[in-house]
Write a protein that binds this DNA or RNA. Structure first.
Lengths: 344, 344
DNA sequence: TTGTAAGCGTTATCAA
DNA sequence: TTGATAACGCTTACAA
């Protein structure tokens, strides 16, 4: 096994060209004669050349690295986004340096410093801890996904539309009273739109409704207890009425569904349920659960498009940065399943 | 904002030291006087120096990059492993370049080339497509997780032990006949151990049993249909008998559980069920499902330890590579939940 | 179409 | 304890 790495110098000597010509073979092959291209191609094989991108980066400053700061990979939503971001390598060629920050602001700030030390060309941020103002101040292109983004480009699901779709569906299936169960989301977070969508439709259609913003806890077990308590309340206050419940996500919806199954051995006829996210649990639940699906693939692809656009702009001789941050919005998709059966 | 990057040269001029001394400040500060350290420290602040790891890498050859090849991030198991691998940054300091290969051999081979071009110091491979012999031939340290590993170091769950635990539990809960539902796993894949564990315990205890190796399909819907069909068979062949079913993973177990709920409005008393993986669905199922939990954190950490050991060895002046690949095995944890209630 | 030579920002070697 | 100088492997004017 040839231990030493083969460099352009070796190829140059072997072929009697200069280093420059070898470099050109890779970056601008048309500027060589076909014959010489073939000679070099053969030399690469003979010498078993392996490219060295680190040297290339140092020389031309382009790392083709994109940093990703994501809260964690336990929530399916985040893994799914990451999966699609990684897949964009095939389209854009950028490599990803990934850090999971677990909602620790100081830690995430450290990760960003590390990323900057590697001359990343841009950054995609899904975690919520660091304000967009600070993210913008690092001087590299940034795209945030589904979080506060006053100072950065962003891609979000159209949460308002999602809220409207979910609420309208419940209404159409003949519910007499509607509920939206959520935590107390800050108004500047995109997902607050779900609440606005719910309220707007209820008011527009003049349907009796209740907005239930509760502390639901951080673990599955806490979620379960809080949701069960809330369901007990609802059941006590509105017996017999046909109830439509829109939950902030599919995990919550599943907890509700399981609880009703435990109480009644099935989904009682006076309940309609819809979740949000189209996460696997919504299909795998004891009854396939209606939900609002985020178009994860589009979100990820759009984020990369937006980032690439900014990164390309920076490489121009006379860069014209965007006037202000661009915000893109991706429409969600309503998925009607068995928990919102319409009247027969 | 100072556009130009500050380099050691700038600091050297500013402090009247040489570049070398500045470098020493970072890599061997004790070789400078305290006073001079302070002078340089102050200069770094005054000039707002940011380190450049690319230049450092080029000069010393150490990228601190580890490549990860993972099949996808849709399966919770893979995301959970990746999450823990990323978390090991805090311990080992290695950064991760992540590629999802989606079981495409040619694509994964391309990804590996790209990783090698960045001078990664080592690689962790979870995907199954490329034979370990080839992985070993790339000449960098490799650790594989839960896959064929004849020529590479590896970390696997003790699948045999898991099979034994699951089967024993079913036996202890008073089942009269035991089943193991799985796909036709190749013998050289670690998870084949689950089948061996099942068979060994059944034979040892002389329990009636059936090994059901079926084509279960690639999608959730296909899984569902195949499993329902299998359950129908079992029910037909063994009515009334107390049946213990050990399924290859929690998704399968959940499908079975949901089907029984649909048929009987609950888990019939003559069924005991256990899955594998301790994935979220096992807790979130309509009834919390017993399962064998893989110790994901330990698996990931052990993999990194094993990799770091190899990478450190390579950096020595006179490296002593391991005589042969080292294989580590992590014990799984039995989680008894409601689908294996013991006799009252 | 090809070559020369000066970088890119560090680290490593030797010498002082 | 410090400094000069040569790598590291490639790109990029500028020349030919």
């Amino acid at each position: 096994m040839g231990k030493q790495k083969v460099t352009f110098d070796d190829i140059a000597k072997y072929t009697n060209f200069s280093k420059t010509t070898i470099s050109r073979y890779f970056n601008n092959p048309d500027s060589l004669t076909i014959k010489n291209q073939e000679i070099i191609a053969q030399a690469l094989i003979d010498l078993d050349y392996k490219e060295n991108k680190v040297a290339k980066i140092l020389a031309n400053g382009k790392t083709e690295f994109v940093g990703i700061i994501i809260p964690n990979l336990y929530l399916h939503y985040y893994s799914a986004i990451l999966n699609q971001l990684l897949a964009s390598y095939e389209t854009f060629g950028y490599k990803f340096l990934v850090f999971a920050g677990n909602n620790n602001e100081a830690v995430e700030r450290r990760y960003i410093q590390e990323l900057l030390a590697y001359n990343i060309e841009g950054m995609i941020v899904l975690s919520h801890t660091i304000p967009s103002k600070e993210l913008a101040s690092y001087g590299i292109p940034v795209v945030t996904i589904e979080r506060e983004s006053n100072y950065t480009c962003s891609v979000d699901t159209d949460n308002y539309m999602g809220g409207v779709q979910a609420t309208s569906l419940l209404y159409k299936t003949g519910c007499e009273i509607l509920f939206h169960l959520n935590v107390d989301v800050p108004v500047f977070v995109p997902s607050y739109g779900r609440i606005r969508g719910f309220l707007d439709i209820c008011r527009e259609q003049q349907i009796p409704h209740e907005l239930l913003l509760r502390e639901l806890g951080d673990t599955y077990e806490e979620n379960r207890q809080a949701i069960q308590k809330t369901v007990d309340e609802i059941e006590r206050k509105h017996p017999g009425k046909r109830k439509g419940i829109f939950l902030a996500n599919d995990t919550y919806a599943n907890i509700l569904l399981n609880y009703l199954f435990q109480l009644h051995g099935g989904l009682p006829d006076d309940y309609r349920i819809i979740g949000f996210d189209n996460s696997p649990i919504s299909s795998e639940a004891v009854i396939p659960t209606s939900t609002v699906g985020q178009q994860i693939d589009k979100i990820a692809f759009t984020a990369m498009e937006l980032l690439v656009e900014q990164m390309n702009e920076r490489k121009k001789r006379r860069p014209t940065p965007f006037a202000g941050p661009i915000h893109k919005v991706i429409t969600p998709v309503l998925l009607e399943r068995e928990t919102t059966r319409r009247e027969k």
